[in-house]
């Protein structure tokens, strides 16, 4: 028996990848929850909405102050408990066993992302120069129009590098989902290793897979950053056809 099976490290990558869709699903939905809820939290904090603001601050503090692993377990055991209580109290009949495990992971990771993303989004929104917002106001634009057309497009440019970081840590955070019985990449690897006892090789394969995914993501974000940023050089007027008969 070989001490270290190089070949196996690469050979078992395809069977591990059969769980890639689960990891991607976890990541995408949690990211979406993170962005939407994060934007909401950021707007609550920026606009200093009474009561909601204090709640947002508390929420962000708790989520950022507890390990993601603990949060996964709290959702995993907490949500069934709440539903059980609901069943007892209101005579409903939710089937606790029918809840797919991935739902717990999505909720836990999504909420976790929202707390971190909200701070990124808040900082980005507040970095947008106030003068432009005043100018948009004096044009007669409504608050929502200003948010959508002036603030967010510029905030995105500022937020993208940090959001990219946050997404990368989320991808790796999904590897904890196996603790709540989700078969993601890591869980799939552990299942394989359980059969051949080649744990070291499996973790090497997993390291390679996560690393490649991260590199792809990093580059995707670079492309996005470039796309959203204001070009360094003005478009040359010669290439642009001016309409409307203006000389």
């Amino acid at each position: 028996m070989k001490l270290f099976d190089w070949k196996l490290v690469f050979d078992q990558i395809p069977p591990i990848l059969s769980a890639l869709p689960v990891t991607i699903e976890l990541t995408l939905i949690a990211t979406l929850i993170g962005y939407v809820l994060g934007l909401l939290l950021a707007l609550i904090k920026i606009n200093k909405i009474p009561v909601l603001r204090q709640l947002a601050v508390l929420y962000i503090s708790i989520i950022r102050g507890t390990p993601i692993l603990v949060q996964l377990y709290v959702t995993y055991y907490g949500i069934p408990l709440i539903l059980k209580y609901h069943n007892m109290r209101f005579g409903t009949n939710y089937n606790l066993n029918a809840i797919p495990a991935i739902l717990f992971a999505i909720i836990a990771l999504g909420l976790n992302q929202s707390a971190f993303d909200s701070e990124i989004i808040r900082a980005a929104i507040q970095s947008v120069d106030k003068g432009q917002i005043e100018a948009a106001k004096t044009l007669g634009m409504t608050g929502f129009q200003i948010l959508r057309r002036v603030i967010l497009p510029q905030a995105v440019i500022v937020a993208l590098p940090s959001l990219g970081n946050s997404l990368i840590s989320l991808i790796k955070g999904t590897s904890l989902a196996f603790t709540v019985a989700v078969v993601d990449l890591t869980a799939q690897g552990r299942i394989l290793a359980g059969k051949n006892f080649r744990y070291f090789e499996v973790y090497c394969s997993l390291a390679i897979i996560y690393w490649v995914i991260t590199v792809v993501l990093e580059n995707a974000f670079k492309v996005l950053e470039k796309k959203f940023s204001i070009p360094d050089q003005p478009k040359s007027p010669a290439k642009e056809k001016v309409e409307g008969g203006v000389a």
Binding site: G131, Q132, E134, G140, V150, Q154
Partner: peptide
């Protein structure tokens, strides 16, 4: 909408 303003710092929308 009755008025419109020109600012000291121009305040053009940067994007």
């Amino acid at each position: 909408r009755e008025s419109s303003m020109v600012f000291q710092q121009f305040n053009l929308i940067k994007n």
